Simulated assay, not measured.
Amino acid sequence: MALVKKGSRLITVDGTTYRWRLRGRPTYDQGLVWPPLTYAVEHVGTPGTTQVVTTNQPHPSNWFGIQGSPILPGQVADSIRTALHDGWTPESPGSPFHLDQSAGFVSSH
């Protein structure tokens, strides 16, 4: 399933263009700062397997006002390179590829 284009951003990593997007509004659990922020990445030309990245920070629109830092394009590029190294094949169909970078996240409960 392809990412929604509205609210997504393009990034070129090592000559390949990807689309990435994080959810504008938090899920119920993210609003309560239970799980960390996640974002998704896909190949632009041939969307196949989506990469789902779990960060180590809260969603910026959480209901407690706990500050997190913004996701920067450099972080997205690093996560793409890491996932490719770990076996993500973005042009092949399949289940989402999960990349867990949540080490150090502190839940609100």
Rank of each mutant, 00 (worst) to 15 (best):
29 D>L: 15
108 S>G: 13
94 G>V: 10
12 T>W: 03
3 L>A: 01
50 T>K: 14
101 Q>H: 14
78 D>K: 13
1 M>L: 12
84 L>D: 00
91 E>F: 01
27 T>E: 09
74 G>M: 05
53 V>F: 06
40 A>S: 14
52 V>M: 10
33 V>H: 01
37 L>P: 01
41 V>A: 08
63 W>D: 12
31 G>L: 03
106 V>I: 15
56 N>L: 01
3 L>I: 14
92 S>K: 15
96 P>D: 12
100 D>Q: 07
15 G>D: 02
48 G>Q: 11
34 W>G: 03
30 Q>Y: 00
30 Q>G: 01
49 T>G: 04
48 G>S: 09
97 F>T: 05
19 R>F: 02
27 T>Q: 04
56 N>A: 15
19 R>M: 03
62 N>P: 10
80 I>F: 06
73 P>S: 05
62 N>L: 01
88 W>V: 04
53 V>H: 00
1 M>Q: 11
28 Y>V: 08
6 K>L: 09
86 D>L: 15
107 S>F: 02
57 Q>N: 05
74 G>I: 04
88 W>E: 01
35 P>W: 08
16 T>S: 12
44 V>H: 07
80 I>K: 07
20 W>I: 08
34 W>A: 00
39 Y>H: 07
42 E>C: 02
67 Q>K: 15
87 G>V: 05
32 L>D: 05
59 H>I: 07
61 S>P: 00
72 L>Q: 13
52 V>Q: 12
45 G>T: 13
92 S>W: 02
33 V>R: 09
99 L>F: 08
97 F>R: 08
41 V>F: 06
41 V>P: 04
87 G>N: 09
77 A>Q: 11
102 S>V: 08
35 P>F: 10
91 E>R: 15
83 A>F: 09
103 A>T: 11
29 D>Y: 12
60 P>Y: 13
79 S>Q: 10
105 F>P: 04
109 H>G: 13
109 H>Q: 09
105 F>S: 05
41 V>K: 05
20 W>D: 07
90 P>G: 03
13 V>Q: 03
70 P>Y: 10
75 Q>M: 15
95 S>Q: 14
43 H>A: 08
93 P>L: 06
54 T>A: 08
21 R>G: 00
68 G>D: 06
5 K>P: 00
107 S>C: 11
102 S>R: 02
18 Y>L: 07
3 L>E: 04
58 P>F: 00
19 R>W: 00
37 L>M: 11
52 V>D: 04
84 L>Y: 06
12 T>L: 03
